[in-house]
Write a protein that binds this DNA or RNA. Structure first.
Lengths: 118, 118
DNA sequence: TCCATATTTCGAGAAATATAGAAATATAGC
DNA sequence: GCTATATTTCTATATTTCTCGAAATATGGA
């Protein structure tokens, strides 16, 4: 289970337009991931600035990397993502379950709105 | 639908141990909310520091307030909360639906783990 | 009106974060 | 070994954020 410290680290990492864009790009890219250079190209950021962003997201546990030849491939950590979402939602229930139901439904609906994933 | 700018504002507001604690407290408190003084007491923060935190959460749209006598009652904005979760999850589906299913399930499971909310 | 309670605003100093240029490191191919 | 490509690290500066004490504002009751 995620600690508050981890949650703050993850939220801090995502609380930045550039890094949020990178993370969402990697979420879209799925397990295949994306080379740092491709990310820089897609987002229009300088290589060193992007590297700093990737470093912060990595240390927050939201993404991880593997080397493939000259490129370093980054990909989202979906377990960490679900861990963060779980942390943000888990207290929603403790007070009045009636409130949390719609929130969970909305989140789920939003998730599956794009295409027909169960 | 939430813009990236709004998402960054919300994430920034939550990316702080004190503010995250306040927000979760208000999520637990439900629609009844909680007076600023009670929040300060519960979290052990100075009134002015707490006021700054509440102000930031308010401007991020995550909470709202109403005055009751001498107290100002704060409560979580559950629509904003679900909006943020939706925003964070919506791109999960666009690439490979197979990945996003478990994430959504986990989030939902986490939500409902505490008690029996559908 | 005067006083007590509740909360917010102001102002300043300290700490953390963001960005970019330049240099350094790692890998691949010749 | 040499060169080109890919990415990271170093260093400095600009900016933002955090926290607190002190003062100000708002409400309720005597």
């Amino acid at each position: 289970m995620m600690e508050q410290t981890d949650a703050v680290a993850a939220l801090s990492a995502l609380a930045h337009a550039g890094r949020l864009e990178v993370f969402r790009l990697l979420v879209k890219a799925g397990h295949a991931g994306m080379a740092a250079g491709k990310i820089a190209e897609a987002t229009g950021t300088l290589p060193n600035t992007l590297s700093a962003s990737l470093n912060i997201l990595t240390h927050a546990g939201l993404i991880h990397s593997r080397r493939e030849g000259r490129s370093v491939i980054y990909s989202a950590d979906f377990e960490a993502m679900s861990g963060l979402l779980t942390f943000l939602m888990e207290d929603c229930c403790s007070g009045e379950p009636a409130i949390c139901g719609p929130v969970a439904d909305l989140a789920r609906a939003g998730t599956c709105a794009t295409e027909g994933c169960a």
